[in-house]
């Protein structure tokens, strides 16, 4: 990532300058001085940091061969990169999303700006390498930064191959995923035994089960945590967007509901990155606002959860 840092930083700053002009309060931290550096998180056990807000692609990037929508999603991805994002999460399960990411990366000439994370999603445990290669062709990448076993499907066989692939330098990081609170007991057992770089799981201001076991375990074992469904698939907005933000939101570094939901997540000390999905440039701008400014402390996090619980 070092080679492109200066070009990238320039683009980020250019994008931020635009956003700051549009919304001067967006990047004001609690001390009132503007903060233009993105919130980065170190990958445990690695000498590398990634931005704490990434991007998911389930549903939002599955637009098939619709050129008009591919161009629109390309603008969403461009906004994401321009505002400092790098981590993009996909899966062969997401229909044409992989092809759309590939096309968007081509037209943005942005293959070197992405931290590419996809999944192995096949019950055939001998297909790990082939599926990774197929995904690589669709994304237009020689290699992924992170390969994860999707929803633990065939995890024993896949994980063995992924460990070999990592040892051979065919992938940089490996992991497993779950969502919706499924199979947490088995998930924890794998986290205890296997040399994982990342786990991906569901965590948001309403779904907090992982705080009890999985998040502490990730810290203990030095495993990075990617958080999926940060908006509970969008239902958090449907439920709460019509409500006012609490009066103290500004103190917690929050200026809209997207930041409220995302900052709650990334301020947990075990969390490396949250991956909200969106099909809209405006929403992407809101979501990327959470990558900047102050983060809530432990007390404020509790108040955030209590506030949402009271609505």
């Amino acid at each position: 990532m070092a080679d492109w840092f200066s070009r990238r930083q320039f683009l980020i700053n250019a994008g931020l300058a635009g956003l700051a002009l549009k919304s001067p309060s967006l990047f004001a931290n609690t001390s009132g001085t503007p903060s233009l550096s993105p919130i980065m998180r170190r990958i445990p056990g690695a000498n590398e940091s990634i931005p704490a807000i990434g991007m998911g692609t389930w549903i939002t990037f599955n637009v098939g061969g619709d050129e008009q929508l591919v161009a629109q999603r390309t603008r969403v991805l461009k906004t994401f990169f321009d505002l400092g994002g790098t981590v993009v999460d996909g899966s062969p399960m997401y229909g044409t999303a992989a092809d759309v990411i590939g096309e968007a990366l081509d037209s943005l000439d942005a293959h070197d700006r992405i931290f590419a994370a996809t999944k192995i999603w096949t019950g055939d445990e001998s297909e790990t390498r082939q599926e990774a290669a197929r995904s690589g062709r669709r994304w237009g990448l020689d290699q992924f930064d992170l390969l994860q076993v999707h929803n633990l499907l065939g995890w024993q066989g896949h994980l063995e191959t992924l460990k070999q692939m990592k040892a051979n330098g065919d992938v940089r990081y490996i992991g497993i995923t779950t969502s919706h609170g499924r199979r947490h007991r088995e998930f924890a057992q794998i986290m205890e035994r296997e040399p994982l770089d990342f786990v991906q799981l569901t965590y948001n201001v309403l779904d907090r089960e992982v705080e009890d076991r999985l998040l502490p375990l990730a810290r203990e074992r030095g495993i990075g945590v990617i958080v999926n469904r940060p908006f509970q698939g969008g239902s958090l907005f449907r439920r709460f967007q019509s409500e006012p933000l609490p009066g103290w939101a500004g103190e917690a570094g929050v200026s809209n509901w997207a930041e409220f939901f995302l900052k709650f997540i990334i301020s947990h000390p075990a969390v490396t990155c949250a991956i909200p999905a969106t099909s809209k440039v405006e929403h992407m701008k809101e979501n990327m606002g959470a990558l900047y400014g102050a983060l809530p402390d432990a007390d404020q996090r509790q108040r955030m959860a209590d506030y949402v619980g009271s609505l």
């Binding site: 549903i59 939002t60 599955n62 637009v63 619709d66 008009q68 929508l69 399960m93 919706h180 199979r183």
Partner: peptide, 29 residues
């Protein structure tokens, strides 16, 4: 997959595209 896991799935989990993309299919064809 256990019974409890199956219960955690809803109809929503099986629809992998959004309404905008679906409606555009009619326009495109």
């Amino acid at each position: 997959m256990s019974g409890a896991d199956w219960l955690s799935y809803s109809l929503q989990d099986f629809v992998m595209f959004g309404p905008q993309v679906f409606l555009r299919l009619f326009v495109r064809i």
